[in-house]
């Protein structure tokens, strides 16, 4: 079933150079995530979970080891190549939403398509797809609002629509509920569950156990190593 593996890492290491001192952040992380999984990555601050997330998100490269994303070794790619991988294969959801402030919801959702070779230029098609996705996340009536006119939960839903616009193989969510009240957090988790049900592969970083509990599988990271990797009760 190798064709269904989305993430495979082999002894991932990341060492930061702080002047003369080498600070290891990852000490050899090997994990495999199958297509369709909903995984939570947990760990205290300084555990290396952010570094792992950055590497899985192709925002950073490992110092050593291999990272296969969708059967492609991406551990040695340059910045431009990584940008293309992020654009075509990944969708990001951030704690602080990270929407562009002067753009409407629709424009924010289409942003990744502007950098996509296949999709760019076809404004009508892009807008249509963005409107469709905004409808799915329940913002059909707020498509032309700017982020400042939307609540935190609504902004995060725009961000989810944006993450899906290029039909990625993997959705990465970094503390997606961290800035939200319980009600909004539940709504966001509901959307993520629905995405998972429809076959999306989701990796979520969180330090909230009750959020992590809602996933299929939990990977706990400590001191740059995988401490625990277990199936979760749910589902």
């Amino acid at each position: 079933m190798t064709d269904s593996v989305i993430i495979r890492t082999d002894q991932l290491k990341k060492i930061y150079q702080m002047g003369e001192i080498e600070v290891p952040a990852l000490n050899g992380v090997s994990i495999t995530i199958q297509e369709g999984e909903f995984v939570a990555i947990m760990g205290p601050s300084g555990s290396g979970k952010s570094t792992l997330m950055n590497i899985l998100g192709c925002l950073d490269s490992p110092t050593d080891g291999q990272y296969y994303l969708d059967d492609q070794d991406v551990s040695k790619l340059n910045r431009a190549q990584l940008a293309h991988i992020r654009n075509e294969k990944l969708g990001f959801i951030f704690q602080s939403y990270n929407l562009l402030p002067r753009m409407s919801a629709v424009e924010n959702v289409t942003l990744p398509m502007m950098y996509n070779k296949a999709a760019a230029g076809n404004q009508v098609e892009m807008t249509k797809k963005a409107e469709e996705l905004l409808g799915i996340v329940g913002l059909g009536d707020r498509m032309h609002h700017q982020p400042k006119e939307l609540s935190g939960g609504q902004q995060q839903r725009v961000a989810i629509a944006r993450a899906l616009i290029n039909d990625p193989v993997l959705v990465l969510a970094d503390e997606p509920t961290g800035n939200l009240d319980t009600k909004s957090a539940n709504e966001i988790m509901e959307i993520l569950h629905n995405l998972h049900q429809s076959g999306r592969t989701i990796v979520m970083v969180t330090h909230e156990p009750d959020i992590a509990e809602q996933t299929q599988r939990i990977i706990a990271v400590r001191d740059g190593l995988v401490e625990l990797d277990h199936e979760n009760g749910r589902e």
């Binding site: 431009a80 940008a83 293309h84 990270n98 990744p112 950098y115 944006r162």
Partner: peptide, 16 residues
Amino acid sequence: TREIGIRQAVGATPQD
């Protein structure tokens, strides 16, 4: 800077 980060995250290359 943050706008640049967001654009990079969703796929803007250094050249973009």
